[in-house]
């Protein structure tokens, strides 16, 4: 018996060392570790990246930009005045908005709940700088699809007012699906949730005599057009996110959403500016579509393992009854 336990110990030790080497250790060496900034949008990573490029002018520009953002954040915003100014935003950010310069402006219905205050300020001030994709606009932010905002809302107090309005009136309870729709789905489809860049795939019917579904064909054509515009604007079609939850670690996804450049330098993916609540909801949705069996596993797991523990105990008694008179 003691000898068997000793052998078991050796086998278990080798197995665990093997596991450690090919899983945690290998993965820690293979992937660059990016520290999370705890979803604080203060431009720290942006400035460090500019410093790494040894571009003095860019470093100064970034420092000044994020210092300005910090200053605006200290102003007291007036939500009522903000609502009037928000009319400018609603001209593009509305239901049934059309594609503008490659991407369809997202709904802002829950912007106050999903996004960080400092990020929203930065976004209105300069969308390319805020989302850390200014390297894509060498001719200035005006060529960004949202670039014209600077000609509409530019005074610090106006920005503070609009953000105060969003935080007060465009907040409220948000479902995981709404979070995904507003923060991600303008660029990313999720086919397992039956969503395209244009939202939920509508229910259509085939003509029973021909077997053809003309409404679906028309919809598919609209999706293809939208995807074509996106691919043209971003350089490639952003990936479908149905199962991204299994393809990347949660830490990768969170730090990537916080600052895409940190994980994938040069990417066209803009920073999302999600706050803790927004991140949690988006992750919840990605987990639902990417790992839908989690609730069923939690229910069945203890029963199956319990069964095998009982099985083992009974097998032990059986074995003992047969081996008792052998030695």
């Amino acid at each position: 018996m003691n000898k068997e336990l000793k052998i078991l110990g050796i086998v278990a030790a080798f197995t665990l060392i093997l596991y450690w080497g090919v899983e945690p250790f290998a993965h820690s060496q293979m992937h660059k570790h990016v520290e999370s900034n705890e979803l604080v949008y203060d431009g720290k990573a942006d400035i460090e990246e500019a410093e790494a490029k040894k571009d003095e002018a860019l470093v100064e520009k970034k420092k000044k930009f994020w210092a300005d953002v910090k200053e605006i954040a200290q102003l007291k915003g007036d939500a009522v005045a903000g609502e009037a100014t928000f009319g400018m935003c609603a001209g593009c950010h509305m239901d049934g908005a059309a594609n503008m310069g490659g991407v369809t402006p997202p709904s802002l219905d829950h912007a106050g709940a999903l996004y960080d205050k400092n990020f929203l300020i930065a976004l209105i001030k300069d969308p390319a700088m805020a989302t850390n994709v200014d390297h894509k606009y060498p001719n200035g932010t005006m060529s960004h699809p949202m670039g014209s905002i600077s000609s509409m809302v530019s005074a610090s107090q106006d920005i503070a007012n609009v953000v105060a309005y969003l935080k007060e009136k465009k907040a409220g309870e948000v479902t995981p699906k709404e979070a995904f729709t507003e923060a991600c789905s303008r660029c990313h489809a999720n086919r397992y949730a039956k969503m395209t860049q244009l939202g939920d795939i509508p229910k259509t019917k085939s003509n029973i005599k021909t077997g053809q579904d003309i409404d679906r064909m028309k919809y598919d054509q609209k999706v293809a057009t939208e995807q074509g515009a996106l691919a043209e604007y971003l350089g490639k079609l952003p990936p479908d996110l149905s199962i991204i939850y299994r393809a990347r670690s949660e830490h990768f996804l969170e730090t990537f959403l916080e600052n895409p450049q940190g994980q994938l330098a040069g990417t066209a993916m803009p920073r999302t500016g999600l706050n803790h609540e927004g991140m949690e909801k988006v992750m919840e949705f990605l987990a639902e579509t990417g790992d839908p069996s989690a609730p069923a596993r939690a229910i069945a797991g203890p029963w199956v393992i319990g069964f095998f523990i009982l099985f083992t105990l009974l097998a032990y008694l059986w074995k003992n009854s047969l081996w008792r008179d052998l030695h």
Binding site: F308, F311, A315, Y316, W318
Partner: peptide
């Protein structure tokens, strides 16, 4: 076999 089944039980857990 009785010992095998016992070892299998531990393995299946």
């Amino acid at each position: 076999l009785s010992k095998d089944v016992f070892v299998m039980g531990i393995y299946f857990v």
